[in-house]
Design a protein around this nucleic acid. Structure first.
Lengths: 339, 339
DNA sequence: CTAATTAGCTAAATCCTTTTAGCAAAATAA
DNA sequence: TTATTTTGCTAAAAGGATTTAGCTAATTAG
């Protein structure tokens, strides 16, 4: 194990002070009136021996770690995995690293993770907040940390966030089913009170209202596992024979719904119409392919990282919160009209 | 922004030295003969005011960060996303945090990432190594860092690794197709020289040999994008009408292959048999569902983190490298025999 | 020619812990 | 009673950078 080089080694070799080397390495040569010739010599040696400052020491002194903490609900869900990857890529280009974690939408775990991120002195926080985190996140903001919420916001809290127009997305999806000729359109959602879920529900209801149709909602507890959900959906569809179309509120519920529909031997779109909120590879490849509300992952990632870098930059002392609501896109797939 | 508490604040409030507080917090009270009564008082106050030591300062002093660097090929591939999540979970329980990144199988980027991880002073490295990283990884090991390779190993290098038995997996998959009555079985793979790919190829060849059948291989350059791959596979299948079954070497190639097969209007399994190496949600839901070689993600994650924690523990001064080869499982899905 | 600036560089403080080396008082041994 | 050991605690160094405050010599101004 070769010994790590220190800034003092560089200084000694050139017979200059540590201070001078530090100034030069941090681009303050001009400002601090270091002669060009000396600056060059230092940079040359640093390059030659491949000296890298110890980031821990530097962070301890400066209070900056050039790291952003990213907490998503579940990194193994393709929606979040994609966003994470895009954010990572863009952050990386600006010299920031990302640490990411899955909250599993668990308040306790999320609290732990925030505390861990604070321990690690991340410079900024990107969070898909579970329910009941209002106070914790408010603390973060009050303590002066840059915070950007993604995918959902917290009602009644002034904050930076990037979300999609869930209401419009669900409205359009529902309207599409109505347009296809379906009469009894149900919505399968979770019992979670997350605002993005409530908005999807509201969009669904508004769309039905405007066509003078009545809503039918199945709310499945969030924690139920795949098999439970499948049998609950099967139950629901068997009991409610009048239902001729379903809007699923999330991609994973839709996937389980497809399984339920397949087990009941119902045909899509003849027996039952299906639209999923949030796209997924499975919908593209399913036979028949499934219409879905696609979220603009790239635009979301872009917006998130832009706002974050802006906050980190610090030059913007405008306390004005940045709230972005991006549009969704309905990807119509099996478009044979009903009946 | 409330001021961060320091260890000196604790010490001052109780009129004891910083040293004493530090000893107590690090569980050295007994060893350092601190009286029980004082230890209790300190712990009580620390609890009360919720003092947390500054991890940067601590790491700077101890040289340990309680962080593991995890580099996978592509975090948005479900195989890696799952492994990452399982590893994260298990590490977390042992007080370790994970930083992860995608290498995109790019040597340059991987080199950058290793350097970034070194900057950040991670305690250990978990890596799916791209080609040509032998020297870099050897450096890491020589410098005394715990390293565990996953998914692939580096030929001719003594190291800790956790891989699956790719040869047997591909052999069984091919044998399955033979058993179904297919006569001209092709393999679609990448031109990458990664050993796990070569082994899959070898398994395929061995299986055909043992049935006295001839191999037919289409090797597509790794960097080609989805559309390119699809048209290359379509080309191949149109020209080689004799091919009646295909073994795809990765899940994403299989997904593109399915698209190609669908565009050519070929029926699975009547016109063409399909097996994918590495499972994916899409295969489960495709109509008909697609047989796949499933990798034991949980077992892989378990083994990786166990070996890593063992290395980090340091008590094991046995330089013996730990090499695990785990078995795959063939998930037979559309099992109607051919003709 | 003297006074004020500017150029060019550096000593020492600082960030916040952990850990080494060691001191004074109390207890025990001789 | 004196010498030794043990108990209970602490001052100060170390870890490796950044940054403040300031010094000396060379210029420029008056």
């Amino acid at each position: 194990m070769k010994k790590k080089l220190l800034i003092s080694d560089i200084a000694r070799q050139l017979n200059v002070s540590i201070t001078t080397v530090s100034f030069i390495l941090n681009g303050k040569a001009k400002e601090k009136r270091i002669s060009d010739s000396l600056a060059e010599k230092v940079l040359k040696l640093v390059e030659e021996v491949n000296y890298k400052p110890n980031q821990l020491a530097r962070s301890l002194r400066t209070g900056k770690t050039k790291t952003i903490g990213l907490m998503v609900e579940d990194i193994s869900n393709p929606f979040f995995a994609n966003i994470a990857r895009l954010i990572e890529e863009k952050a990386y280009k600006q010299g920031y690293k990302i640490i990411y974690c899955s909250t599993e939408d668990d308040t306790g775990k999320t609290r732990d993770l925030i505390s861990m991120f604070r321990d690690k002195h991340v410079d900024g926080y990107i969070i898909t907040p579970p329910q009941g985190m209002k106070a914790d996140i408010q603390d973060l903001i009050s303590d002066g940390f840059p915070v950007v919420l993604v995918d959902r916001y917290i009602t009644g809290m002034e904050a930076n966030y990037v979300v999609v127009d869930n209401l419009a997305g669900a409205f359009n999806a529902t309207a599409h089913l109505v347009g296809q000729g379906y009469k009894k359109i149900a919505m399968v959602t979770t019992d979670s009170k997350q605002n993005q879920m409530l908005q999807r529900l509201e969009g669904y209801q508004k769309a039905l209202e405007s066509h003078e149709l009545a809503p039918t909602v199945l709310a499945i507890p969030y924690r139920h596992d795949a098999e439970q959900m499948i049998s609950e959906i099967m139950d629901f569809l068997s009991k409610r024979k009048d239902v001729d179309a379903v809007l699923f509120a999330t991609n994973y519920m839709a996937i389980r719904g497809l399984e339920a529909i397949s087990r009941l031997d119902l045909a899509i779109p003849a027996d039952i119409g299906v639209v999923a909120y949030d796209d997924h590879d499975v919908f593209r490849f399913y036979k028949p392919s499934i219409t879905a509300v696609a979220q603009p992952t790239e635009a979301i990632a872009d917006q998130v990282i832009n706002v974050m870098l802006h906050l980190l930059d610090g030059s913007s002392k405008t306390a004005q919160a940045n709230m972005s609501v991006l549009p969704t896109r309905l990807i119509v797939r099996n478009s044979t009209p009903h009946k």
